[in-house]
Design a protein around this nucleic acid. Structure first.
Length: 272
DNA sequence: AAGAGACCCTGGATGC
DNA sequence: TGCATCCAGGGTCTCT
């Protein structure tokens, strides 16, 4: 569920709550949440450590530990993070609980069990294959043009390919293509230089705005303090099927692209 | 190699 | 009300 703006917002909020707090103990409610290393090693290596810094790469959260290793986490669709008093009752979907020395608990909750935790010497062990950060200068019109050359897959699907660019999910792919006036089914390689530039700029603008609005809350996403984001109020096409396009009034259409729900304006985003 | 589809899960919304 | 079906903001794997 969370995309780049949501992950960054959660990370910013959680950082101040956990940095430099020793992890007294670790409780795993569902073993599948640990991707690597094997559970006993994971527990042994994490106990007694403390987080010294946080970073984000695509939709991955990176927690640097005081022994130089990294706790890497991905929230996937329904993952949530909170830091609460240990006395607060646990939820059945609290799969990973890090008990902090001061009596609080850092809890990872995930209804659909897609989220994962990794404990690795180098975060690149997990994030190696990710493409550039969309808000960095590495994600330029030139980069995108080269990456799209010869590609026949729909531009929508390519924006969701984390190897091409890291951090975009279904919401912001649809919103960016709307801003760029590009039909989601256009083959990536069919975009001319001007259209590629429009897509790159739209990706950056929609993500930057969503960051300032602390993300989009449709259902599951919450900031660690329980509050919601506000970008859902700025959505122009996503989940607005049948509603009028903000620009021309034509009804927003919903189609399936690459197995994902896709929303666009048939007038502003022409197929040809 | 690129692209399409299956799969991993649970629960809320919708339809009959 | 009860039950079935569909749907979900992600990523990885397999097959072609």
């Amino acid at each position: 569920m969370p995309e780049l703006p949501e992950v960054q917002t959660i990370l910013d909020a959680i950082a101040t709550l956990i940095i430099d707090q020793p992890i007294a103990d670790v409780i795993v409610g569902w073993e599948g949440v640990i991707d690597r290393p094997p559970l006993p090693v994971f527990l042994n290596e994490l106990r007694g450590r403390r987080v010294t810094g946080v970073e984000r790469r695509g939709k991955y959260m990176l927690f640097r530990l005081d022994d130089g290793h990294w706790l890497v986490m991905h929230l996937r669709m329904t993952g949530r993070m909170r830091v609460v008093a240990a006395s607060e009752p646990r939820d059945r979907h609290d799969h990973l609980v890090l008990q902090l020395e001061d009596g609080r608990e850092w809890r990872f909750n995930d209804t659909r069990k897609f989220g994962r935790a990794y404990l690795v010497p180098d975060p690149a062990d997990v994030t190696q294959r990710l493409g550039p950060e969309p808000l960095s200068d590495d994600f330029s019109s030139d980069y995108l043009a080269a990456a799209l050359t010869g590609r026949k897959a729909p531009i929508k699907s390519l924006l969701l390919d984390q190897r091409l660019v890291a951090g975009i999910g279904n919401i912001y792919a649809d919103e960016a293509l709307y801003r760029a006036c590009i039909h989601p089914l256009r083959p990536g390689g069919s975009l001319d230089a001007q259209e590629v530039a429009a897509v790159a700029a739209a990706v950056k603008s929609v993500l930057a705005q969503a960051l300032t609005e602390m993300g989009t809350t449709l259902r599951d996403y919450r900031r660690p303090d329980g509050s919601v984001g506000s970008f859902q109020n700025s959505l122009q096409v996503f989940r607005r099927t049948g509603e009028p396009c903000p620009t021309c009034g034509a009804p927003i259409r919903r189609i399936i692209v690459g197995g994902r729900s896709t929303h666009f304006c048939p007038e502003e985003q022409r197929q040809t």
